[in-house]
């Protein structure tokens, strides 16, 4: 994770759940093309926002010692469009966590309105892929990401 797509965490319960906030603005250039005259947040970027929220939650649960990679989208249902000016909250709950992987269920809300349901699986890649070697340093979690948690954990 080398770019940040959430603005801040509102809640962080280590190993259990987290809520993050993402403000959507017309200053995001991709919205000018998606779509001209009808800007809406691409669904794939809602998945990215959830993956970052849930990925940091899973990483922190193991003290950022694991390389946490998005491995599977278990569920992904979108109920409404997200428009510039919207503030969405990303609610992630750890359903299962094992030495090799974790499963997280997530919901995206705008106020109280349900926008999307996204459940994801993350792999701890050093413990998977039959002993394949990865770089020693944790390239997933940079200091930039950890700074999002300042004051919360």
């Amino acid at each position: 994770m080398r770019w940040i797509w959430i603005d801040k965490f509102l809640e962080f319960n280590s190993g259990k759940s987290a809520v993050a906030l993402k403000n959507v603005t017309l200053a995001e250039e991709h919205l000018h093309d998606h779509f001209p005259g009808f800007p809406i947040m691409p669904e794939c970027l809602m998945i990215e926002a959830m993956a970052q929220t849930a990925g940091i939650l899973v990483g922190e649960a193991r003290n950022f010692e694991e390389k946490v990679i998005l491995a599977k989208i278990q569920k992904c249902v979108f109920h409404h469009y997200v428009r510039p000016g919207d503030a969405i909250t990303l609610h992630a709950v750890i359903e299962s966590i094992a030495p090799e992987a974790a499963g997280v269920s997530g919901r995206i809300l705008r106020g109280q309105e349900l926008i999307a349901e996204i459940s994801l699986m993350f792999s701890h890649i050093d413990k998977n892929l039959a002993g394949k070697e990865f770089p020693e340093e944790n390239f997933v979690f940079t200091d930039m990401f950890k700074s999002l948690l300042t004051g919360l954990t």
Binding site: Q74, S96, A98, E100, M121
Partner: peptide, 14 residues
Amino acid sequence: ESIDFLDIVFRLEK
């Protein structure tokens, strides 16, 4: 695929 086996294990546990 391999990640599905972990998914199945998690779901069976639940």
